[in-house]
């Protein structure tokens, strides 16, 4: 084999490796989700939808702390009805968050859930959650947003309290202009 053809073969392989690694960078996104599910990294909740009840563990009581957070530029009043809920593992519990839109315009919001400690995320099943859909509120309107959840009986002993937070993001369609474009436009509107 000549050096020239050896080079050609090697370049092809190395370029292919580079392209594969570029793809791998993107593959890290779904891989990361799998990784999160396995390790509970970052408190991403992946257990949603109907769940089979298999009895309640009355020996244990878990404190679930509910938190509502507004992300930047979100003027809604938003928070849990009960900020602390005590439940037995296996017990289905209904609670709700309240939101109201104090502004003079209709807005659309998306709630993003997060759990601390992250390890607990895989044991928190949400049967029904307002975070599955975006929420539209007209000017001055308010709403109760229900949440139905159950904590898995397999929850490790050492976890006695769980925090469930929802962050509200403004996804109104009139907010389509991205921030940097706004800056380019001079941002004259304060």
């Amino acid at each position: 084999m000549t050096v020239r053809s050896a080079n050609r073969r090697l370049i092809t392989r190395l370029l292919l490796a580079a392209v594969l690694m570029f793809g791998f960078g993107f593959a890290l996104v779904p891989l990361y989700d799998v990784f999160c599910r396995v390790t509970g990294l970052n408190g991403k909740i992946t257990n949603t939808g109907p769940v089979e009840q298999t009895g309640v563990d009355t020996q244990r009581l878990v404190k679930v702390r509910m938190i509502g957070v507004n992300n930047e530029g979100m003027p809604w009043q938003f928070g849990p009805i009960d900020s602390l809920v005590e439940v037995n593992p296996g017990e289905m519990r209904q609670t709700a968050f309240q939101a109201s839109n104090p502004t003079g315009r209709s807005m659309v919001a998306q709630a993003i859930p997060s759990v601390a400690p992250g390890e607990a995320a895989q044991y928190l099943h949400k049967v029904n959650c307002f975070c599955f859909n975006s929420q539209t509120l007209a000017a001055g309107e308010s709403v109760d947003m229900p949440l139905l959840f159950v904590i898995d009986k397999e929850l490790p002993e050492h976890i006695r309290s769980i925090t469930l937070s929802y962050t509200l993001f403004d996804i109104s369609p009139d907010k389509t202009a991205s921030r940097s474009e706004e800056v380019q436009m001079g941002g004259s509107r304060i």
Binding site: A18, M21, F22, F24, G25, V29, I112, F169, S178
Partner: peptide, 30 residues
């Protein structure tokens, strides 16, 4: 060869988030 493409990938994701409305790193979009 193993990692420079990953860097290219991550800045490409940024580019898409900024200009094409994807949500790789934007919590609002998941």
């Amino acid at each position: 060869i193993a990692v420079m493409p990953v860097l290219a990938g991550v800045v490409t994701m940024m580019l898409m988030d900024i200009h094409f409305g994807t949500s790789f790193f934007n919590a609002a979009g998941g």
